[in-house]
Write a protein that binds this DNA or RNA. Sequence first.
DNA 1: TTTTAAAGTTAGATGAGTCTAACATTTAAA
DNA 2: TTTAAATGTTAGACTCATCTAACTTTAAAA
Lengths: 223, 223
Amino acid sequence: MTNFEGMGSLTEENYIKSIYSLSLEAGEVTVSELAKKLNVKLPTVNSMIKKLAAKKVVSYAPYQGIKMTEKGKKEALSIIRKHRLAELFLVKVMGLGWEEVHDIAEQLEHVESERFYNRIDEMLGKPKVDPHGEPIPDVNGKIHSKNRLAVSQMKEGTSGKISAVSNDEKSFLDHLNAKGIQIGDLITLKKRESFDGSVLIITKAKKETMLTHQVAERIWVES
Amino acid sequence: MTNFEGMGSLTEENYIKSIYSLSLEAGEVTVSELAKKLNVKLPTVNSMIKKLAAKKVVSYAPYQGIKMTEKGKKEALSIIRKHRLAELFLVKVMGLGWEEVHDIAEQLEHVESERFYNRIDEMLGKPKVDPHGEPIPDVNGKIHSKNRLAVSQMKEGTSGKISAVSNDEKSFLDHLNAKGIQIGDLITLKKRESFDGSVLIITKAKKETMLTHQVAERIWVES
DNA sequence: TTTTAAAGTTAGATGAGTCTAACATTTAAA
DNA sequence: TTTAAATGTTAGACTCATCTAACTTTAAAA
Ligand SMILES: [Mn+2]
Ligand SMILES: [Mn+2]
Ligand SMILES: [Mn+2]
Ligand SMILES: [Mn+2]
């Protein structure tokens, strides 16, 4: 059960993925952000960061933020690639719903087998987008990311095609399923309430639906 | 990353699987057999056995052999089911060769998801046999095992259909691939050398091939 | 600018899974 | 039936990933 030459343990892989996704928002990642995301305490993160820094996956100096190195980004993108390929495979080939694939992909992303992922990639025709609209990095870690605008940022009266959701937890996607919202749907923003940031949209099925700000900011339309 | 209620860690699952398969040969399993199979030292096995005994997965008294409990057998069969379903899926749905699926299945068997395995089972039509001819336990752990005879035990002049191989390591299966031997092939045993136990068989393609005893005893024909 | 709160670090402990070295028991040979 | 070899067990140590408690540094308030 020895790990791959130069590759990290399952735990390390999860740290790398989390650091990467947090760094997309802020550039520098803090120890406490990471601790919250991974559900561990601060000292746990602190000691793991030292290990990752020793492996040149992140750069770090005490009391400073955590930054990914190029090596770290490559590893992160490779794991994200596997995660998203797995999700799409589970939906397209195995017929699972977009709301139930994330938890399985969290496990499959750690499977170590070039062959396995190459076959998935081929069977899906080298896809560029996962079931939640998120881009799938290619084998070299390159991402084709489209310009996107959160539904919470749309101007009243404008329309847009839903291109992605920035959360793939089951509870959130169950909520969207209940409202009949899917990737690819054309929606129109009818009204935004300035009080709480909730929005009223007109869905594909010409139905009016209200979305809270928390929901609207996690749905992206093409721009 | 907490483990399933009552279910074991990845390490425990690997012990359970190994104990089960060794117990099929001998009933009682020894500490040293297990240590050899798992590539760990005797004291490592000793302490893990105590843990498994505490969990009622095996029964054990010092210096006595290790026996699986009913609970342990159930767990073992559930893991074996997942392993074999995964192997067949990799071959039938994903187009991989029978020689390359075992290592991937070793990882997939630990995936925790009813949905995942139910879909695989459905897509394959609730299959009974894996790509190596080994029976796939059903959800209740029931196995339909056919009567089998090792090629090394066949009488000279008799024929039989290859129904399984009792080893799914890549090196062994590469060897069979090179000799053009597959599950389902009808073969005839032409001669057995009493000196070294090697056998001469006539394959489906009417070609004569020599198999060493080590190989012949790992290939089963229906009887 | 002092004080306080938040964030980060160090020290030391724990459980899982592994190891080596030393000792005990069982089995096989002499 | 004594001796030697093989097998099994105990004790103690190590790494990994985690924790709590105590201390330090930085950032925010007063
Ligand atoms: Mn996901
Ligand atoms: Mn996704
Ligand atoms: Mn196998
Ligand atoms: Mn098999």
